[in-house]
């Protein structure tokens, strides 16, 4: 049986307590929420914390508030993915997020995995998400214990891929994340939470706790999320497309198109979004936007499927998402 290495497990009851524990543990400490990302990684020794600080007992992180007429929706980072996608206010007003959450892994895993955990999901790569012995056989990789990124051996950086389903949606929706550190609390726009680096993939400081996600009020916008993968369950995305559109009397007033699982961060493609602003999403506009999103979509050979096909599917998925939004245009 694949087992966890020994560690000390701490169960704070408040964020403040958690922060103190993390300060005490220093670099040896890590937070855990649902455990569905960290524990498999620990079993394969991607992460080797000596102290694991559970955020699961902090009630404040499990709340969903607001989201009614004109107010933003606040979702605690500790809300499970099941709670997230079944919550009526999320399902009704923020269906793209509900959909993304519902598409994560499996029903059983979603009972454990949290929204915050999915946002902070460790970047993935099929040279990295392997057992210690497997990685030893390729002399490890840059992301852990090794020197070289096998996806691009001459590259100075790690190309592990952001494989979160909810992250691209938060970027598309323009969500803000509440990060609480020992000394300050800060509000970070989703787009600035992620970094284009497979190793240092978050701007969050390791001691900070992601406590809350704030989603903008409902206001004539619509959004959707499409996920590409081999199987309808279990699998991480090999491509995700999140699209947000602000409507103004049948015209696109503003838009964001975000690609998931093709880079180390949810990749916004403003050049594609620009093309649809001011349009009614006519076929040729959609086609142009799909082509514009296709160009910068640069998946690497580190997930299921070949990268050429994944790149090609970007066009189909952007087209599909835009068509979907057109059919349920909000005036």
């Amino acid at each position: 049986m694949l087992r966890l290495p020994p560690f000390t497990y701490l169960q704070p009851k408040s964020v403040r307590q958690a922060l103190r524990m993390k300060t005490d543990a220093g670099a040896n400490g890590m937070y855990v929420a649902g455990g569905t990302d960290l524990y498999p990684n620990m079993k394969r020794r991607h992460q080797e914390p000596k102290v694991v600080i559970s955020l699961a007992g902090i009630r404040a992180l499990g709340r969903i508030t607001g989201g009614t007429r004109g107010s933003e929706l606040s979702v605690g980072a500790g809300v499970t993915l099941t709670e997230l996608h079944t919550h009526p206010r999320v399902r009704n007003g923020y269906s793209a997020l509900a959909r993304a959450a519902e598409l994560v892994s499996t029903p059983v895993l979603r009972n454990m995995g949290t929204f915050g955990g999915n946002i902070c999901l460790d970047t993935r790569c099929n040279y990295y998400n392997q057992t210690y012995e497997w990685r030893k056989a390729i002399d490890f990789c840059m992301k852990k214990d090794g020197e070289i990124c096998w996806v691009a051996p001459s590259s100075p950086r790690c190309w592990a891929v952001n494989s979160s389903d909810t992250a691209p949606v938060t970027v598309a929706l323009g969500a803000e994340f509440v990060l609480v550190g020992p000394d300050e609390e800060r509000l970070v726009p989703a787009a600035r939470f992620f970094r284009d680096d497979g190793i240092n993939y978050l701007t969050k400081h390791p001691h900070e706790v992601l406590t809350e996600v704030r989603l903008p009020p409902l206001d004539h916008w619509d959004a959707t999320y499409w996920k590409l993968r081999r199987r309808g369950s279990f699998d991480f995305p090999v491509l995700g497309v999140a699209v947000w559109i602000k409507w103004d009397g049948g015209l696109v007033a503003d838009a964001r198109i975000v690609l998931g699982a093709v880079a180390s961060y949810p990749k916004e493609v403003p050049e594609a979004a620009q093309l649809i602003i001011g349009s009614e999403l006519e076929d040729d506009v959609i086609e142009a936007a799909a082509a514009a999103a296709y160009k910068p979509s640069k998946p690497m050979d580190n997930t299921d499927f070949g990268l050429a096909w994944r790149k090609e599917m970007t066009r189909n998925y952007v087209r599909g998402t835009l068509q979907e939004l057109r059919t349920r245009r909000k005036d």
């Binding site: 087992r3 497990y9 649902g34 455990g35 498999p40 059983v108 895993l109």
Partner: peptide
Amino acid sequence: HGCELGECGTCTVLLDGQPVLSCLALALA
């Protein structure tokens, strides 16, 4: 247990009535 990594569902038990993967649930929790 079939993988101990949350990739097969074999180890599912009910925790407070809800299905969870016992391979990824820390007993202390």
